[in-house]
Structures are given as structure tokens and as C-alpha cells.
Design a protein around this nucleic acid. Sequence first.
DNA 1: CGAAAACCCAGGGTTTTCCCCTAAAAATAA
DNA 2: TTATTTTTAGGGGAAAACCCTGGGTTTTCG
Lengths: 215, 215
Amino acid sequence: MIKVLIADDHTMFVDGIESILKLEEGIQVVGRCYDGGSVLKYVKDHSVDIVLLDVNLPDMSGIDVCKQLSASHPSVKVLAISMYNEESYVSEILNHGAKGYILKNTGREELLKAINTVQGGATYFSKEVTETIMKGLMNRRKSSAKSSPDIPKISRREKEVLKLIAEEFTTQEIADKLFISLKTVESHRANLLAKLNARNSAGLVRISLENGLLN
Amino acid sequence: MIKVLIADDHTMFVDGIESILKLEEGIQVVGRCYDGGSVLKYVKDHSVDIVLLDVNLPDMSGIDVCKQLSASHPSVKVLAISMYNEESYVSEILNHGAKGYILKNTGREELLKAINTVQGGATYFSKEVTETIMKGLMNRRKSSAKSSPDIPKISRREKEVLKLIAEEFTTQEIADKLFISLKTVESHRANLLAKLNARNSAGLVRISLENGLLN
DNA sequence: CGAAAACCCAGGGTTTTCCCCTAAAAATAA
DNA sequence: TTATTTTTAGGGGAAAACCCTGGGTTTTCG
């Protein structure tokens, strides 16, 4: 028997969910909460398997609820429910321990599948949400891949110097660390400025980070 | 009846999968392929619902197979199977149309769940794979996901200066842009160095980018 | 309201970076 | 092998960054 807690500030929505789950034999709705604080309170005093958690709650964001929940009660699985298929919402709440993310226009079948999947220890995202995540991944890949229009090869030594510059070491400190002269470090930096087309160390760091040159 | 095609170059593995699926009533293994070319060929001539596709095949990578498959036969769902839980593999093959990604140490139960989920139109990732994806998301989204441990408020003017520093402008240029003295700009930078706990402008830029302070 | 804090401004003095130049030993590629 | 790149290093000077101090203004908060 899966014990489910529903957390959403819209009564009608909670009613809808409950009426769906009531018909299921393996699922028991053990409680209803209309704000984040009640969720934390309820979980403290009762046994709960899954929390159907709305991302947007009146008093505190579902993200915060999720964060605290997974810290204090890691065995409780959070299935996020939201009106919004926004990548930032999705990644944020998943980064804070949610086991799944579905939209509010989800049908009965999918809701049940999500609950069962999450209960089984895996994660569940509805199709639309997955597409959103993938789009996000794809865009980031493109931008990180294409954004090297004209970057000549950075030699091994130059890369070492570059890393140390990004870590805020002075030229003298870098020279000492690498057992080379201060003038040599300056040479490397000068070459880096030319290669990365930067005007100063600040630009050097920015360009490096934007193109992931420090890995 | 779900028609499944197994594509993997390790015979024993294919046997294992097939013996598992043979016991299932709703699933029928319609073919076996040991390289990528055969997959494309088979799909062209037969009706297939799901391809269990190994990411590493002898002749061509599973990514390429997936790409061509989703272009020529979009109704065929690809469920990627791999030994490796590498973020680059996962995101790449998912970007090319795969509907799921599971590892080779996956048990019988999870394999069946994955097949049914994918057949139902949703996507499926095993727990470990999801963690990998989320880790990747988190690293790229440090700004939104991560907490800012000890960053005092940056004033409006300081932020302006900070942005211009990151854009490689010199102190004099910043002073001219903002119609203030060179010395004033230096003051702002000094305050920024203290607030962000940086030693120099390079660190200023790094910390800003890591914490998304330039938005 | 009134004090404390934060913000914006700015100058003097010191250290560091940046730039333009040259150049040789060492490693790598053709 | 020869040719190219990398790594090393230096002089000298202009520019920028950094450190310390302080005054005037605005914001915040009891």
C-alpha cells in the first residue's frame, strides 16, 4: 500500500487527484496539505511514501519544501506537479531531490504510472517535461560546442598558467609554483592574450570559462 | 504485443535479454542484430516497436544508428542500453531521438518497466542515469541551482563596473563610460574585491560568472 | 527623527600587469 | 634530417591594478 500525501493550494485540484487515487487498490491518500509548512509538519508526524508536491505553494516554494524534505526525510519520495513546463523549475526541483516531475494536465493513467514508477525507486518525467529537459541539454551542448570559432591550440604549459591565473595567483606566485622565471610566466600570459584574443587577464578568465578551457 | 528488436554485439547479452523477454506475454522479440548496419536494414523491412540499442556497436556508434533511425522511422522507439553511465553518452544519444537509457546491470523488473514506459510514449531513465543527467545539469546551472554562500549585496554602481571589467574594459575606459573619475572606478573595484573575496580582477570575473552575478 | 551603515566619489603611493622587443634551448612535427 | 612549435628568459617602459585614506551623500533601521 503506497501512502500518498497531496500538497497543493487549489482545493479542486486536490479533490480531483484524491478521487482518482481513491479508486486504486494499492494507493492510499493519507493526507492533504495546502501549504509548504503543513507538508513538513505532516511528514514529521506520519508515515508517508510519496508526496505529490505542487511547485508553487502560497507560503514557500515547492523547491524549498523539497530541499528540507530530502534533508530530514530522505525516504519520502517527492513527485513534483506543476502547471509550468519550465526548464528552470524542472532542473531546480530535481536538483533538490524530487524523484519525478509531471504537469497538471496529466491524465489518470499517467499519474498512476508516475506514482508507481517513483515508488519503485526510479524517476518519472512526463513526455513534455522530458522534451523540455532535452531541449535544454541540447541548447547548452550547441552553445558550448559551437562557441569556439577561432581558438588556436593552447599548449600544455599555457593551460597550466591559465588555470593558475583563473585561480587568482599573481605572476610571481605562478612562477614559484611552476619553478620558472617570472618573465616566462609573462610570456605565456602574453601568448594566451594573443591566442584567446583577450585584452587582459579578466578577459582571459571569462573566455576560458565560457569555452570550458579549464578542464 | 510489443515488437522488440535487440541490437548488441555481445551474443551472451542478447541471449540474456531474449530469455527474459520471452517469458513476457505482451512482448515479442522479433529480431537480433549484432551491428548498426543490420539494425537499419532490419527496420526497413520489418515492423518494429522498440529497438534495444547498445550504444557501442562494432561498425558504427549507437548514436549514429539512433540518428538515422529517428529520421527514417520516427515511430520506432529507441531504448539505449550501455555499460557506461557517462553524461556525454546519455545526453548525446537522447538528443538524437532515444526515448530511454538504461544500464547493462539493469535487472529484469526494470527492463520490463523501461520497455512498457517507452512503449507508452513516455521516456525512461534508470535511477543512476537520472542522477548523472542531473549532475550535469547542476554543473552547468551553478548560478541558479547553487547557493551563494557568502556574497554580500553588490550595489548598482558596483555591478555596472563589474560587468565592464568582465568585458575587458580598462579602468580608464570604464571611468569615461560612467563619467566618473578613474580613481572612483578603482574604489568600486576595491570594494568588489573585498565583497567577493577575490584577490584580483581575474578572480572577480571567475566568481561573477560562477555565481551568475552579471545578469 | 537620528545614528549607523552603506554607497559613491576621489587622491597619493606601491605593486603588478601589460606591451614591444629579442632570443636560445628543448620538444615536436614534417 | 630539417622545420616548426613550445618553453624558457630577459630589458625597459607605460599602463593598470592594488592599498590606504577620507569626505560627502544616500539608505537603512532602531
